[in-house]
Simulated scan of single mutants.
Amino acid sequence: MARAKSEEKRLSILSAATHVIAKQGTEAPTLLIARQAGIADGTLFTYFRSKDVLFNELYLHLKTELRDAMMPGYPLGASQRDRIFHTWHALVQWGIDNPEKRQAMHVLNLSERVTVASKAAGADVFSFVMGLLKEIVESHQLLQVPVSFYAGLLGVMSESTMDYVCRGVDHPEAAIAAGFHAFWRAIGGD
């Protein structure tokens, strides 16, 4: 009779995979992930049928964790600026607080091992951000380019802000606010 799977062990494997992928990329052996998780190599495949399944589940796990970090205190009835600032601040703070997860997400974003379906599901996790950006674009009569362009600006400018703050600046909150101000101006905010 098969043993019931432990959610704690599954999360341990995901954590170990995050660490290994951040350090060595997606070509790192599963044996290394299993050792990092403190389990036998075969146990990893009890939880994830293959390395690719593990990486796709990890990708969605990290995306969901980031989204969940953005939701506490989300000012639903606030102005567009306040809502996008909340999103920006939470995104940047998560990246600063979780450099290994951020790096693993970068690696997985670029990996062909993560399927188109997983990338689409990862994007769906952030549908509330895309909806807000669409609302901003329409109300500010911005250039008629896909909202994904503005989402790309959000991503690149927030990454630049994270990189800057992670260098150990004296006033990280001021840097986060300055990064947001640049983004807000870039998308037509006043």
Rank of each mutant, 00 (worst) to 15 (best):
K134W: 01
G131S: 07
D82P: 08
L110R: 15
S127E: 13
L44F: 05
L108D: 01
Y47I: 02
T87S: 13
L60E: 12
K51H: 09
A2D: 07
I84C: 10
L31G: 14
M157K: 08
K51F: 03
E7D: 12
Y150H: 11
I13A: 03
F48W: 08
L66V: 05
V137G: 04
L142E: 03
Y47H: 14
H171P: 00
R83Q: 12
M157T: 06
S148P: 00
N109T: 02
G77I: 01
I176Q: 06
E8P: 00
P72I: 02
F183S: 06
I13V: 05
S160N: 11
D170T: 09
W94R: 10
V169Q: 02
H89S: 14
E7R: 08
V53D: 15
D163T: 10
A175E: 10
Q36R: 14
L54N: 09
A78D: 08
H61Y: 14
S111C: 04
T18F: 03
A178F: 07
D163L: 11
R3M: 02
F183L: 15
I176Y: 05
F126K: 03
I13R: 00
D82R: 13
V107H: 05
D52P: 04
P146G: 11
L31A: 15
H171M: 11
L11W: 00
H140V: 01
R167P: 03
I96C: 13
G77M: 09
L110I: 00
G42L: 02
S148G: 04
F126W: 03
A123N: 07
F48E: 06
M70D: 09
H86C: 08
V20S: 06
L153M: 13
D190V: 14
E8M: 02
A123D: 06
V169N: 03
L32D: 13
D68F: 03
A182Y: 06
L62E: 02
P72N: 06
L32Q: 15
D82A: 14
L62T: 02
A182S: 15
H19G: 03
F55Q: 11
K101R: 15
V107I: 13
W88A: 02
E135Y: 01
G42F: 00
M71K: 13
A174K: 15
V156H: 06
Y164E: 12
Y47W: 01
I21G: 01
G188D: 09
L58G: 10
L76C: 06
S118T: 12
H106I: 09
F128I: 06
K9G: 00
E112L: 13
L132C: 04
P29Y: 04
L154V: 04
A40V: 09
P172E: 02
H181E: 15
G73F: 03
L110H: 13
N56W: 01
I39L: 12
E8V: 08
G168D: 06
Y59S: 03
N109R: 10
A175G: 03
K119I: 03
V116I: 13
A151W: 09
G179H: 05
D124G: 13
T87G: 07
L31M: 12
Q93M: 12
I33P: 08
K101W: 00
G188F: 10
G25M: 01
L91R: 15
A104W: 04
R185D: 08
Q36C: 11
